[in-house]
C-alpha cells in the first residue's frame, strides 16, 4: 500500500503553547492510503500535534510537508492550496449549529468550487449518503446524536474530495455500535477511495481494527516512544509505558503497585 514518497512528512517538529514544549523534536512520515494513528495518554500532546499538522498552530520549530508543499510558513493562495488537500473532523464535530447537515457539507463546496448550485447540493447529498446520513440531511446538528454528528463532520471534511482526512478522537463518547460503524466507515473510505487517514485516538479496540501504523507519544519524554503496527507493539514492545498503555494498566505513581510489568524493562 505504501509508496516511497510520503504524503505527509513531519521533520523535527517541536510544538506547544507559549514557552511550554508539549511535543519535542518529532519526525515521522505518513504514506498514501494508510490509516495512521497518533496515540498516547491524556495530555501527551496528541491534539496539539494534530493542530500543528493542520496549520491551526504555528510550530515552535520544524517543518510540515504535504507532498512537496511546505505548510509551515505558507500563506495566501499557497496555504489555501495545501489546506484543500485535507479535511478535518474535530473532536465534537464542530458542525455549524445554525445550518442543516446538508448546508454544513455544502459550505466548502460553495466557497471553493465554481459548481452550479444544483451540483453542489447533489455532491453534498452524495457525501451524506456515503456516511449513511441521507435521511438526516435537513436536520440541525442539535437534533442528531453524537455518532451522527461525527459522521456528518466526516461528510463535511470529505466535501472537497481531499486525499487526507484528519480525525480528532472519532470514537470518543460513542456507544460501541456507533463506534464500530465509524470504524467500518473509515476502513471502507480508506480501502475504496484510497483516502489517507490521520487519526488521534486512544480507543484501543478501534485502533486494532483500523490502524495500519501508529505512533505513540509519551508526555514525560515529550516525544515518540513507539512506532509500528499496533498489535505487534502490544505483543512485543518492551517499553514499560507502551505495555501499560496497551494492557490498560494504571501507572505506578497512582497505585503504588506496578502490576505484572515491573520486569518489562
Amino acid at each position: 500500500m505504501n509508496t516511497n514518497d510520503p504524503i505527509i512528512s513531519i521533520q523535527n517538529l517541536t510544538c506547544g503553547y507559549d514557552d511550554t514544549v508539549i511535543v519535542d523534536n518529532v519526525s515521522f512520515d505518513i504514506f498514501k492510503g494508510e490509516v495512521f494513528v497518533i496515540l498516547g495518554g491524556s495530555g501527551c500532546g496528541k491534539s496539539t500535534l494534530l493542530k500543528n499538522m493542520i496549520g491551526l498552530y504555528q510550530p515552535m520549530n520544524g517543518k510540515i510537508f504535504f507532498g512537496t508543499d511546505e505548510l509551515t510558513g505558507a500563506q495566501g493562495e499557497q496555504r489555501d492550496k495545501i489546506i484543500c488537500k485535507f479535511g478535518v473532523m474535530y473532536q465534537m464535530g464542530a458542525l455549524f449549529g445554525s445550518m442543516s447537515l446538508l448546508q454544513n457539507v455544502m459550505l466548502p463546496l460553495e466557497e471553493f468550487t465554481n459548481l452550479p448550485r444544483e451540483a453542489i447540493s447533489m455532491v453534498a447529498q452524495c457525501k451524506l449518503a456515503m456516511v449513511n446520513l441521507e435521511n438526516a440531511a435537513y436536520k440541525l446538528p442539535s437534533a442528531i446524536s453524537g455518532g451522527m454528528k461525527k459522521r456528518a463532520a466526516i461528510a463535511r471534511a470529505m466535501a472537497l474530495d481531499p486525499g487526507i482526512l484528519f480525525l480528532d478522537e472519532p470514537g470518543a463518547g460513542l456507544d460501541p455500535i456507533s463506534s464500530a460503524e465509524l470504524d467500518e466507515l473509515i476502513l471502507n473510505l480508506s480501502r475504496t477511495l484510497g483516502i489517507t487517514f490521520v487519526i488521534v485516538s486512544h480507543e484501543l479496540e478501534s485502533i486494532y481494527k483500523t490502524a495500519d501504523r501508529v505512533i505513540m507519544l509519551d508526555k514525560d519524554v515529550k516525544s515518540i516512544v513507539a512506532e509500528g503496527d499496533p498489535k505487534q507493539l502490544r505483543d512485543t514492545s518492551e517499553n514499560l509505558f507502551v505495555k501499560r498503555f496497551f494492557h490498560r494498566q494504571p501507572s505506578l505513581g497512582k497505585t503504588g503497585h506496578d502490576k505484572n510489568v515491573s520486569t518489562a524493562e
Binding site: E118, A119, M122, V123, Q125, C126, M158, A159, D161
Partner: peptide
C-alpha cells in the same frame, strides 16, 4: 471525484 459522481447521479 464526488463532483463527477454528482453529475452522473443528476
Amino acid at each position: 471525484d464526488g463532483s463527477g459522481v454528482a453529475l452522473l447521479l443528476k
